[in-house]
Simulated assay, not measured.
Amino acid sequence: MTCAATHSLKYFYTALPQSTGLPEFSAVAYLDEQPIYFYDSSTKQVVARQEWVKGAVDADFWRRNKQLLMDTEKVFKTNMDTARKRFNQTSALALQKMCSCEWNEETGATDGHELYGYGGEDFLSFDLKHERWIAPVLQGLYTKMKWDADVPKLKAKTHYLTHTCIEWLKKYVSNQSMLDRKVPPQVSLLQKEPSDRVTCHATGFYPDATMIFWRRDGVEIHDDVEHEETLPNGDGTYQKRTHLTVSPEDLQKHDYTCTVQHISGDVVLSANRDSIRSNSRHTQRQDISIIAVFLASVTLVIFVVVISVMIQKFSNGKEQTSEKEK
């Protein structure tokens, strides 16, 4: 059983005979059993299966992997024909390969595997601990001996499973965790003057997908509602505003609510006198005046204290001088 702290990166490669009518070669990459990108011989393209993957790799990643998988496709077709001859068959069967690595986020333990199957049965498997191939069937013995004799390739295989694959696994996990995070919005209602429109302002949320709408007495309204585009904040989160044009009398007469729908949960605010914050210039000037008075008061207190200390020191100095003169 795999615990939550254990992550896996798996690659599945499949070569099929032409008679199936399906793509003759395909490859799928999985992170924690979820497909992250895909390639097949029909499209000749590497396609992301998860949106966050696009931000986890560099721009040249797709071109490099496309070329790599096109080369792998040729190798698999040759190996499939070789396996057909080893089993003395007139037509080839499906050839598959699974390459994977695992990483326990809590303990740091890692592991790696590589398996080949032909016709739905195990054909070869790599023993990472002893750096050798294992052939469960007689037809795989020749390939096992040939691959075991190539020491540089054995070392490269070990390095890939214990280092390269693990590095990519950690990279994907890190990016998925960051991009899959859910930060709820902070919602406030703003109005400059009682006669002005009411603004429902949501900020600090992630991801950027969100909807803001107004209701009057529980019924969603669209007239007199203006939506602004979602804008990025400087910290990686987003903000969005929606404005409602409504008279002060109508605002008091009916129950107006703003609803912000986000993947992290919905936020509903009722538009009443207690919940609407004023952002008028008059209020801002009042706030500035209050702050100015406060700062002036603090400055005066500090000035009085400093003067008092100086007077005390001056008085003490005069007393000491008088005593010396005596």
Results as ranks from 00 to 15, higher is better:
1 M>K: 15
1 M>H: 14
3 C>V: 15
4 A>G: 00
9 L>W: 01
11 Y>S: 01
15 A>L: 00
18 Q>N: 10
19 S>C: 05
20 T>I: 03
21 G>V: 03
24 E>M: 01
26 S>H: 00
39 Y>I: 02
50 Q>K: 07
53 V>W: 04
65 N>Y: 11
71 D>V: 14
72 T>A: 14
76 F>H: 06
76 F>V: 07
78 T>V: 15
87 F>W: 10
92 A>C: 13
96 Q>E: 12
99 C>I: 10
102 E>V: 12
109 A>T: 15
119 G>K: 01
121 E>K: 08
123 F>V: 09
126 F>M: 08
127 D>Y: 13
128 L>E: 14
128 L>C: 14
143 T>F: 08
146 K>G: 04
152 P>Q: 01
158 T>Y: 00
159 H>L: 01
160 Y>S: 03
160 Y>W: 03
169 L>V: 09
176 Q>F: 13
181 R>E: 13
187 V>P: 05
188 S>L: 07
191 Q>L: 02
192 K>Y: 01
196 D>I: 10
204 G>A: 14
212 I>K: 08
214 W>G: 12
216 R>M: 12
221 I>H: 06
224 D>G: 02
228 E>T: 05
231 L>G: 07
233 N>G: 08
235 D>I: 13
239 Q>N: 15
242 T>L: 07
252 Q>H: 15
255 D>A: 10
256 Y>N: 04
258 C>F: 02
264 S>F: 02
265 G>Q: 04
273 R>V: 02
276 I>S: 00
278 S>F: 03
278 S>A: 08
279 N>A: 06
279 N>I: 12
284 Q>C: 07
287 D>R: 14
292 A>V: 15
306 V>F: 11
310 M>I: 13
319 E>S: 07
323 E>K: 07
